[in-house]
Design a protein around this nucleic acid. Structure first.
Length: 572
RNA sequence: CGGGGUGUAGCGCAGCCCGGUUAGCGCACCUGUUUUGGGAACAGGGGGUCGAUAGUUCAAAUCUAUUCACCCCGACCA
């Protein structure tokens, strides 16, 4: 490709809208452009990178026995009504109507479509297991799209679905799929972690996420310093403390006037004690019923765990009116002592491990001190409902502690079980002629997001540093001065040679200053730059610059091809 | 959905408070000349429904109301 013909509008300044490196660089390097909030176009180089990643995914999945299909982007509402997700999915589901007023949605995921296809066409255990996948754009109407391609509304995804006769078979495929995913991310040269995850609205019990580690990642992950336990903070378990009888202090609790001190932070400062000696009492509405939830002032609530502990469908923090009604005080002064309203009190394990707390008094502008569990209040039960934090003890081993890191969720695998096959009656006949419901798994990879994640992990102040497997082109020939016939004819010859040798090459033949060409090459991040300039004119040498190491090699004309081959095979 | 912010040339911004020249600057773009090793210089040039609508006024980019879009923080949600 000749750069002079290439459509690649690069930008010198950092775009105002972009916060993180990958977003800035994808815009600056002319890979993508935004057309509306959370909706992007891929430009030629961006598309080449995306296709390279998709092909890696394809190769590895095909190798693992998966078959590629392509489902429609627009899905009739009937299927979603059948699975029950038409009501449940909420506003993220983009719903549309055709001219006859028939309802459809733009697919955010395709469990319904694939299950429908399979139930109509697979009837015997002899046809199982079966794994289908597609690479397609999805649409989720995110409340707040951000970080460019990383969290957009329309986004590329590879989604695979597997169908099985038994749980054991699903488990085998699930494990094989995890191995396949590892190979995919390894081929992209990414650092990643497999973490235990919550399965969210997709459903199922067993699920794992593939997290590309990056400081700017949206997800918090914990990993144990000693054992192999890693988990998304949403799912990270905390151990129940040992049962030990704490001595009951003799001091009775007392009221303290705390005017306008509503947050734990303010109140802790007032009493000059650590926030961990406070009990934060949160009033939630679980399926419309009020619940008092107790955690330490220094902790944050994990609503996913709480929802599971309460076994409820809808969970919301109560509004001010409800708080006033059930505690008798405005928000900010709730406490577990003398809660007269009849409701469940649920406490985090960490409450149990200590004694004598500061709490709200259920009275405007008052807090209590020296509050003691059992003596002054009794939670209905103790459970794990807070978010894990740095240096919490590991729940899986005895001597480990949690470390917090951040990651980008690039892939997610689920053992779905029968959630969809049951709702949509996907059944088959087993070897004894008995009708059975299929067991399913599903496996996603965000394609665009992984490309962004690759940048997030590989850049410097000059631009992107593509891993060879994703680079839009491998070699960039930089002709520094178009007016020098010697240089031009040499560059042209070299360009032709590399094309003939099937090397992915771009030839910067633009009538631009050398400086601009260097800057663009660094920004876009071509792994190998061949500089045709002074050194060639004076000494017959080509300068080869390696983007990832910044090393420059001076190479005699006759060795160029050999050297390129050597570099390309080392880099991959 | 709540809070905050921004909409003026392709991009980044000034002008607005205190209404009154031909709406301005940098980058980008076009033409020419000179250049060509780290986003070149000079000269000339093109490009604007001042987000939209309504109002106040002799007069609106500027004041008022409404509305739309986008960004940030939070809540919500995969």
């Amino acid at each position: 490709m000749r750069y002079s013909k290439l459509f690649c509008p690069t930008i010198k300044e950092v775009p105002k809208e972009a916060e993180i490196a990958s977003h800035q660089l994808m815009l600056r390097a002319g890979l993508v452009r935004k057309i509306s909030s959370g909706i992007y176009s891929y430009l030629p180089l961006g598309l080449r990178v995306l296709k390279k990643f998709e092909n890696i995914v394809r190769e590895e999945l095909n190798k693992a026995g998966c078959q590629e299909v392509l489902f429609p982007a627009i899905i009739p509402a009937d299927l979603w009504l059948e699975s029950g997700r038409w009501e449940k999915y909420g506003k993220e589901l983009l719903r549309i109507k055709d001219r006859n007023n028939k309802e459809f949605c733009f697919g955010p995921t395709h469990e319904e479509v694939v299950t429908d296809l399979i139930r109509k066409n697979i009837k015997s255990y002899k046809q199982l297991p079966l794994i289908l996948y597609q690479i397609q754009n999805k649409f989720r109407d995110e409340i707040r799209p951000r970080f460019g391609i990383m969290r957009s509304r329309e986004f590329g995804m590879k989604d695979a679905y597997s169908f099985h006769e038994t749980e054991e078979c699903l488990d085998k495929t699930y494990k094989a799929m995890i191995k396949t995913y590892c190979r995919i991310f390894e081929r992209c040269g990414l650092n990643f972690k497999i973490v235990q995850a919550d399965s969210g609205s997709i459903g199922g019990n067993v699920s794992a996420e593939f997290m590309v580690t990056a400081n700017t990642g949206e997800d918090a992950i914990i990993e144990c310093s000693s054992c192999s336990y890693t988990a998304n903070i949403e799912a990270a378990e905390l151990a129940a403390p040992e049962d030990s009888e704490l001595e009951t202090p003799v001091i009775e609790y007392s009221e303290v006037h705390t005017p306008d001190l509503k947050t734990v932070k303010q109140t802790a400062a007032f009493f000059k004690v650590s926030e961990k000696y406070f009990i934060k009492t949160l009033i939630y509405l679980a399926d419309q019923k009020p619940v008092a939830v107790l955690i330490r002032g220094s902790d944050s609530i994990n609503e996913i765990k709480l929802r599971k502990a309460l076994n409820c469908e809808y969970l919301n923090l109560a509004d001010d009116e409800t708080v006033q009604k059930v505690t008798g005080a405005p928000a900010g002064f709730a406490g577990p002592v003398n809660l007269n309203f009849d409701m469940i009190i649920i406490a985090d394990y960490s409450i149990k491990a200590s004694n004598s707390f500061y709490t709200g008094a259920n009275k405007k502008d008052y807090h209590l001190k020296n509050v003691v569990i059992k003596r002054d209040f009794k939670p209905g039960k103790y459970v794990d409902i807070r978010n894990a934090k740095e240096s919490d003890p590991c729940s899986k081993c005895t001597d480990g502690h949690y470390r917090l890191i951040r990651g980008i969720e690039a892939g997610h695998v689920f053992q779905l079980g029968k959630k969809y096959s049951e709702a949509m009656s996907a059944s088959f006949l087993d070897s004894s002629g008995k009708e059975k419901i299929m067991t399913m798994g599903c496996y996603g990879i965000g394609t665009g997001r992984t490309v962004a994640a690759a940048i997030e992990q590989n850049y410097d102040s000059n631009g992107i540093i593509w891993p060879l497997s994703l680079a839009p082109y491998h070699v960039d020939i930089i002709l520094t001065n178009k007016k020098e016939p010697v240089l031009t004819s040499f560059a042209e010859k070299l360009y032709q040679l590399l094309i003939d040798e099937n090397i992915e090459v771009i030839f910067d033949d633009r009538d631009e200053s050398a400086g601009k060409k260097f800057k663009d090459a660094e920004l876009i991040g071509f792994p190998v730059q061949l500089i045709i300039g002074r050194k060639l004119k004076d000494d017959g040498l080509v300068e080869m610059k390696i983007r990832s190491t910044n090393k420059v090699y001076l190479i005699p004309e006759e060795n160029i091809l050999k050297k390129i081959r050597q570099v390309l095979s080392n880099e991959s």
